[in-house]
């Protein structure tokens, strides 16, 4: 993972950077290296670009061009099949801030729902996998088996987990209510059709589903913290809390930045779970931004308005990412 190569620890830093370092090492041997030297494979000015080319091609085709085209589309009333795609300037954006427009209510309702889901899911998705990773990092019989077990749900597609949990959580006939009833608890909770249970269900399902992924990233990070740091701390009489606070967390800082940012983005892009489990309900309470954008762009063919919404969402997410970077920056 890219996060491990960013480790400050000298030993692992060198090990992780071995791949990138290969060229450098050769160059170091290859003295003298004049500025105009172009002979040989390594010296060519094209070399870095050739290495970049495969990624750059994909990036251009699938990110850069669609991104720019999206901005262009958002300035029009765009239906790709209609010959007439009138230019409307910033109207699609202005409509999103005009409370009398058609989209205002459903868009901001979905943005609120999205923000709320981020708030209730991300803390659990950052903390629980860390605890899990610390547990799975210890040496005990069957460790690999448990690592696989906890990672397993992540392998399943959203359609699978969505369908499965909508059966399990069904208020009338679901296994969850059935089991609650069997042990004498209330068995008529409307897990998918009333609030706050719909949000609880969605957050719990998402945590169950993706926790394993974050835990694996944490595990890789934990493996990069040198064991002698802990030994030294123990010799100095540090408690396990102090070890966590002063060795583990700081050692995981780059991993943590990665996890927080990717988890926020993943939660903000939540779609399948509420689409399949709650159908955006009850009412429109769990209709997320991506649901609104998809519906508008791909079933109503209002691609201009949908693109404008996407960009507003993207701006919000960029701001959140910046705040994350700032909050988790290395404090000197």
């Amino acid at each position: 993972m890219s996060t491990t190569s960013g480790q400050p620890a000298p030993v692992t830093g060198r090990a992780a950077a071995a791949a990138d370092g290969a060229v450098e090492l050769v160059e170091e041997v290859d003295e003298p290296r004049g500025p105009g030297r172009t002979s040989g494979i390594h010296g060519s000015r094209l070399t870095p670009y050739l290495f970049l080319a495969p990624f750059l091609t994909l990036f251009t085709v699938f990110v850069l061009v669609p991104g720019l085209l999206g901005i262009w589309i958002s300035l029009h009333n765009w239906d790709f099949l209609l010959p007439n795609k009138p230019f409307v300037g910033a109207q699609n954006y202005l409509d999103l801030f005009d409370s009398s427009s058609v989209q205002f209510e459903s868009f901001w309702n979905s943005m609120r729902a999205t923000g709320f889901f981020v708030l209730i899911s991300v803390p659990f998705l950052v903390v629980l996998p860390l605890l899990l990773a610390m547990l799975l990092h210890r040496h005990f019989p069957g460790r690999t088996f448990f690592r696989a077990i906890f990672f397993a749900p992540f392998v399943l597609g959203v359609a699978v987990i969505g369908l499965m949990w909508s059966y399990l959580l069904d208020p009338s006939f679901g296994l969850v209510n059935g089991m609650l009833g069997a042990i004498g608890l209330p068995d008529d909770t409307a897990w998918t059709t009333s609030q706050p249970y719909a949000w609880i269900s969605l957050a719990a399902v998402t945590i169950w589903w993706t926790m394993g992924f974050n835990a694996v990233i944490y595990l890789a990070g934990l493996g990069d913290i040198p064991a002698d740091h802990y030994e030294a701390a123990e010799l100095d009489g540090a408690s396990s809390w102090q070890q966590l606070r002063y060795i583990t967390i700081p050692g995981l800082r780059p991993v943590l930045v990665f996890i927080v940012i990717t988890t926020v983005l993943a939660s903000a892009n939540m779609f399948g779970q509420s689409y399949l489990i709650t159908q955006g309900g009850p009412g429109e309470t769990t209709r997320t931004a991506i649901m609104v954008i998809t519906d508008l762009g791909l079933t109503q063919y209002r691609m201009g308005e949908a693109s404008a919404m996407s960009y507003v969402l993207a701006v919000f997410l960029s701001l959140v990412a910046l705040v994350n970077f700032w909050a988790l920056r290395e404090k000197k």
Partner: peptide
């Protein structure tokens, strides 16, 4: 009717004699 039923629960209820 039961309140707050989920998608398709109405037909399942008919099949189950509820």
């Amino acid at each position: 009717s039961a309140p707050k039923i989920a998608q398709d629960a109405d037909l399942v209820a008919l099949e189950n004699g509820k």
